[in-house]
């Protein structure tokens, strides 16, 4: 039963490796957007420290959005999606594999470089752990929710803009709790509550999003 899961995962990671340039664009976008802020708001450290969590999170959210439309587009165009939908194994399973591979390629690098970028904002060493953890829990939620949007807008004209309008409002709770976790750690109240909520949200998204995505893909293919 897990055959298609691993086949899809292996293939998508291999494809990401062969088309590395596409992947690097997302990461470069994240780094550049974050680096623009100190230029824009000035080098006042207290101010930079205060906006750091929000800036990093909004930048992560926008970079996620940038790569989302690629999730199913190529497979839709070349007919692979048809073949996958005809697989006797459960659709939600290989959809989850696609999303997981997509997150490893586009989300994980953001999580890894975020602590380095946070240093630009003079964020204290003690908070870096919470920042990384909040992104590690939150960015997969963004990928899962975004995948549903990508499936719903598949094959539509102007799908890219529609996708942004569709999923950005859904990203708001993740943004609030993600940036909030870092904020409350900076404020000294501890980030446990925010991180637990993010973790809960992640589990909920893993359980539900693949099924919503599978249903949307079936509709899109008709």
């Amino acid at each position: 039963m897990l055959g298609p899961f691993f086949a899809v995962m292996r293939r998508d990671l291999l494809l990401a490796w062969r088309g590395r340039a596409d992947v690097l664009v997302t990461l470069a976008f994240f780094v550049i957007v974050v680096c623009l802020f100190p230029f824009g708001v000035g080098a006042e450290t207290n101010q930079l420290r205060a906006i750091a969590p929000g800036v990093l999170w909004v930048a992560a959210l926008l970079s996620t959005l940038l790569s989302l439309h690629r999730l199913f587009a190529q497979d839709h165009a070349d007919g692979t999606l048809e073949q996958l939908l005809l697989s006797p194994e459960p659709t939600a399973l290989w959809v989850l594999a696609k999303i997981a591979a997509h997150w490893i390629v586009t989300g994980l690098p953001l999580v890894l470089v975020a602590p380095g970028l946070a240093l630009l904002f003079d964020v204290g060493q003690g908070v870096l752990g919470v920042l990384t953890l909040s992104l590690a829990l939150g960015s997969p939620i963004l990928a899962l929710l975004g995948a549903v949007g990508a499936a719903l807008t598949l094959g539509l004209r102007g799908g890219g803009v529609l996708l942004a309008l569709l999923v950005l409002p859904l990203f708001v709770p993740v943004l609030i709790f993600g940036a909030g976790a870092v904020d409350s750690e900076l404020g000294g109240t501890g980030a446990a509550a925010h991180l637990l909520l993010l973790g809960g949200g992640l589990l909920g998204a893993i359980a539900l999003a693949p099924f919503a995505c599978a249903a949307a893909l079936r509709i899109a293919m008709e």
Binding site: G3, A77, D78, G79, Q83, S87, E89, W94
Partner: peptide, 25 residues
Amino acid sequence: SGHAAALNDLLTPLENLRFACAAAG
């Protein structure tokens, strides 16, 4: 076997065929 060949341009025929079979179970 559909109208589109379900081939990914970045993969070799062998990789494409193996994936098509694995996807079909």
